[in-house]
């Protein structure tokens, strides 16, 4: 049943085999270098005990799950709010009506200000500042205002991503939708946004993954989340292994997250034809 391969197929097979061999060889060389050379460095024993202490790693992983779940929860309620906030900002920056110029001005200034200041400062300023004004145990909870700071600042980043996506959809799509009699809202909702969002999923994932890491900054305000717990354990044992444990936990979430999105995107791309997303 074997049909003879064409010249092209033979060539491709050869190339594939060679590139696979190169990839395998280079991986092995790098790993070998890590496994063989690293222990030969003079500080390896110390570093290994400071960063890769097996018993501390097991201990940390075990009792960091609770604090890490706290991180995940904060992420889970912040992410949708940020997406909504970012989208609203993107709309506000896209308004064309002269009457709504103040809205556009506001959103532009907002974006500049919130992107221009490091996250840590926003968390500190909002997280300690607002509860100071409120003087209320319930309304002044660190997690509330920490989340607000995260949402406020990240919306500015995400808003720009959405705006870029919206502007990347060609004007002719708007013309086509409007010529059918669709209102500008319907055009945005059914024609522009679906295409824009597909385009910005990769940069959006970037922001979400870094949000997942920045959630840890809320610890400045008092709550014990995973990074703080790692710091406490570090101070207890005078050993950095808890940080490695925290890193492992973060990877456990962010790697599947990014892989899944990539996979979904690719499936979507195949479904709508190879060049549907131009």
């Amino acid at each position: 049943m074997t049909t003879p391969l064409t010249r092209r197929q033979r060539y491709e097979q050869r190339t594939k085999r060679r590139s696979f061999a190169i990839a395998a060889a280079s991986t092995i060389v790098v790993l070998a270098a890590v496994v063989v050379l690293l222990p030969m460095t003079s500080g390896w024993q110390k570093v290994r005990h400071s960063f890769f202490d097996g018993s501390i790693l097991r201990f940390s992983l075990g009792h960091m799950l609770g604090p890490f779940w706290y991180d995940v929860q904060i992420f889970l309620w912040c992410a949708p709010c940020i997406l909504l906030g970012g989208l609203s900002l993107a709309f506000a920056r896209n308004v064309r009506s002269p009457a709504l110029f103040p809205l556009r001005l506001f959103s532009t200034i907002y974006t500049d200000v919130f992107r221009g200041v490091p996250m840590v400062l926003w968390i500190t300023l909002i997280g300690f500042g607002v509860p100071g004004l409120l003087q209320s145990r319930n309304l002044g909870r660190a997690v509330i205002w920490g989340s607000v700071a995260l949402i406020a600042a990240y919306s500015a980043y995400v808003g720009e991503v959405f705006r870029a996506g919206i502007e990347s959809v060609h004007e002719s799509q708007r013309a086509a939708a409007r010529s059918l009699g669709m209102t500008s809202t319907q055009t945005m909702r059914h024609v522009i946004l679906p295409q824009a969002i597909r385009r910005v999923v990769p940069p959006l994932m970037n922001d979400l993954v870094s949000l997942q890491k920045d959630v840890a900054l809320i610890s400045i305000l008092g709550p014990v989340e995973v990074l703080r717990q790692a710091g406490i354990d570090k101070a207890k044992f005078f050993n950095f292994t808890p940080y490695v444990a925290a890193a492992v936990l973060f990877l456990c979430v962010s790697v599947p997250l990014t892989r899944t999105t990539d996979h979904l995107l690719q499936r979507e791309r195949r479904r709508t034809g190879a060049t549907a997303v131009r």
Binding site: A175, V277, R278
Partner: peptide
């Protein structure tokens, strides 16, 4: 001229 169908 360029059809302008909605690709999605």
């Amino acid at each position: 001229q360029n059809y302008n169908l909605f690709p999605h």
